[in-house]
């Protein structure tokens, strides 16, 4: 007899709980915006914040609720995601400006000089606080790979003391540029080609002693630029990409070779080229 009471009691308790939950979830459920879920599925989910929202969820919510928000803000997703999002929302797809991370320091262990031995915590942020790391140039790449750890796709590796971006893998999210304590990483759009590979803001002679790749502030680039796109400001050449015609004159006249002509084609551009070939 007691077992019957026990069975009835537990069954009743379970049943009561179940009924309560069903009733409550029926009356109190929050209507879910299905568009939001669909958009969220299209987005890559790396939560990088390149779109300017708090993550993929935030961007999906904003897109679903506000028709004025652009569909081409997702840089890691590139054109493919922009098209999918646009088709979910029923609007015309806009082209995404693909980006690639570029590290403004080419002063690897062969080129730079060392001022001390650093034996502390192996992160750039920690080394930066102790006399700016091992290298005598405190503006350059520290080389403990904070950016490599931040990269969601493993596109950054440390070689010979400085970080390198593997452009075939880079999705252009910009998470690396946020963690670099020397602010060496900027995001380059695919249309740009000229880049400065030094960040040293000291006087030319001082910089030269510290690193053979350092900008010596000779202003040859500024004087030879046919469109006056380069100005040496704060002891560093600044390129105005609106004026730059990609002629490459600055790269050829630079005596230390700290301006280069490069290609900023990231993963998305390369994938597109492969599919068209």
């Amino acid at each position: 007899m007691p077992i019957v009471i026990a069975i009835i009691l537990v069954t009743l308790t379970g049943l009561l709980c179940a009924i309560m939950l069903v009733v409550v979830s029926h009356f109190m459920s929050v209507p879910v915006n299905h568009k939001e879920e669909e958009i969220r599925k299209c987005l890559p989910g790396v939560n990088c914040g390149a779109c300017g929202y708090t993550g993929c969820d935030g961007y999906a919510k904003a897109l679903a609720n506000d028709p004025n928000i652009k569909t081409n803000l997702c840089v890691p997703g590139a054109d493919k995601v922009a098209k999918e999002v646009a088709s979910v929302l029923g609007v015309e797809a806009q082209d995404v400006i693909e980006q690639v991370a570029f590290i403004h320091c080419f002063g690897d262990c062969d080129k730079r000089t060392q001022k001390d031995e650093y034996e502390g915590i192996k992160t750039c942020a920690a080394a930066k606080n102790i006399y700016g790391g091992e290298a005598s140039c405190s503006y350059g790449c520290i080389g403990y790979g904070d950016c490599a750890h931040a990269c969601p796709v493993g596109a950054i590796c440390i070689e010979n003391g400085i970080a390198h971006v593997d452009q075939r893998k880079c999705i252009g999210c910009g998470m690396c540029s946020e963690v670099c304590p020397n602010h060496l990483i900027t995001m380059f759009a695919d249309v740009e080609v000229m880049a400065v590979t030094c960040n040293n803001q000291e006087k030319g002679a001082v910089a030269r002693k510290k690193c053979s790749n350092a900008c010596i502030k000779c202003k040859k680039c500024e004087n030879n630029c046919p469109t006056k796109a380069i100005k040496v400001k704060d002891n560093l050449p600044q390129i105005d990409y609106d004026l730059c015609i990609d002629c490459g004159t600055c790269a050829t006249v630079c005596p230390v070779g700290c301006i280069i002509k490069a290609s900023f084609k990231g993963k998305h551009n390369l994938d597109e080229n492969e599919s068209t070939n």
């Binding site: 007691p2 026990a6 537990v10 379970g14 709980c17 309560m20 939950l21 109190m28 929050v30």
Partner: peptide
Amino acid sequence: FNLGYLQTIVFILVIAALVQLVEIILKR
């Protein structure tokens, strides 16, 4: 009802249902 031995199972049942309930109400 002298059913002390049912303590564990009943408690788990009730707590689980209750937390679900609270979650639904909080969400709303």
